[in-house]
């Protein structure tokens, strides 16, 4: 399937999802749906680096929060339309990803992972100390109630996130089937051999880090409008870091389908668990599922299904 056909199909599916959700006509579905879609974007973004090249990013929350705080910063200057804010948020996170990658990706993979882990702590320190964007008190963003053509603002946000999902999935699938994707795969399988065969590994890794970081920042940019009141602890929440790793790992890391399945399953499960049990318990479930899956089913749900099909044939 050509990328263009895939994109058209995705857009068709997105339109169906949007009107189906509208038909349900319940604000809660939009609120919950937004969060699930946000996780689809985050886990797809994580997978571009983690799944395709094998480099683990523990700082998803940092990239996400950067996008969100870029919005807060700009909102204080002048209220811009959300699509523009998404571009800015993506650019900021992409540049930070590039810089981090440049400093650490020339070394062993573990250093990059550790640096991303520390990045979240440092950026949070920075934001907490920066009064302009609210500091530790947090920042209020008053969102309009309605927007032209679409109606309630939450539906608009939902639509924006749906568009981001379409972009993220198209990018991920496009990478998989391009020279870039094969280059990434050589890095994941044997970086030394790839380097020796003339694959420009550092450049490819930097492309992956930048793309992945930018998509995370884009997912974060509309977040202040969604939540209305942005605190450092909510923007840098550990649930983003753990979910964006757990979802691809549980879904399967080798193709774009894995993060999508993982995010929809885990995301919906968490929406239900948060309402019915408690948010701490649902994070515990995610953590335990992550540990269980990496030990028992290293290729995730996609791997399990593939194995099952192979066996029944």
């Amino acid at each position: 399937m050509r990328t263009r056909v895939f994109l058209l199909l995705l857009i068709a599916v997105a339109i169906v999802v949007f009107f189906a959700t509208r038909w349900v006509n319940n604000d809660y579905v939009f609120f919950a749906g937004y969060t699930v879609l946000q996780f689809v974007v985050l886990s797809t973004a994580w997978n571009i680096l983690g799944g395709y090249t094998g480099y683990v990013n523990f700082g998803s929350a940092a990239f996400f929060a950067l996008g969100a705080y870029a919005t807060v910063f700009l909102h204080k200057l002048y209220p811009l339309p959300i699509p523009l804010l998404i571009v800015v948020g993506g650019a900021v996170s992409g540049i930070v990803g590039l810089g981090m990658g440049y400093l650490t990706l020339r070394l062993r993979g573990a250093f990059f992972a550790i640096a991303t882990l520390a990045l979240a702590v440092v950026l949070q320190t920075l934001i907490v100390n920066w009064d302009y964007v609210g500091g530790s008190r947090g920042a209020y963003i008053i969102r309009p109630n309605e927007i032209a053509l679409i109606g309630p603002y939450i539906q608009y946000l939902f639509l924006v996130m749906l568009a981001l999902v379409v972009i993220a999935l198209t990018v991920a699938r496009g990478i998989e089937r391009s020279r870039l994707g094969y280059g990434f795969a050589t890095i994941r399988d044997d970086e030394l051999a790839a380097e020796a065969s003339g694959v420009p590994t550092l450049r490819l890794k930097l492309i992956a880090t930048t793309l992945s970081g930018a998509l995370m920042g884009m997912a974060g940019a509309p977040f202040p409008y969604y939540i209305g009141y942005l605190q450092p602890s909510s923007a840098f929440g550990l649930e983003y870091a753990v979910n964006s790793i757990a979802m691809p790992m549980i879904g399967g890391t080798t193709s774009w389908v894995g993060p999508l399945i993982g995010a929809i399953l885990l995301g919906s499960l968490q929406q239900i668990a948060t309402v019915t049990i408690s948010s701490a318990v649902n994070l515990l479930i995610v953590g335990l599922l992550l540990v269980a899956f990496v030990i028992i089913a290293p290729n995730g749900i996609v791997g399990l299904v593939q194995g099952w099909i192979r066996r029944t044939k």
Partner: peptide, 10 residues
């Protein structure tokens, strides 16, 4: 590299 790290993170 990938799963071992995720294991410890979990």
């Amino acid at each position: 590299s990938l799963r071992g790290l995720s294991f410890f993170f979990g």
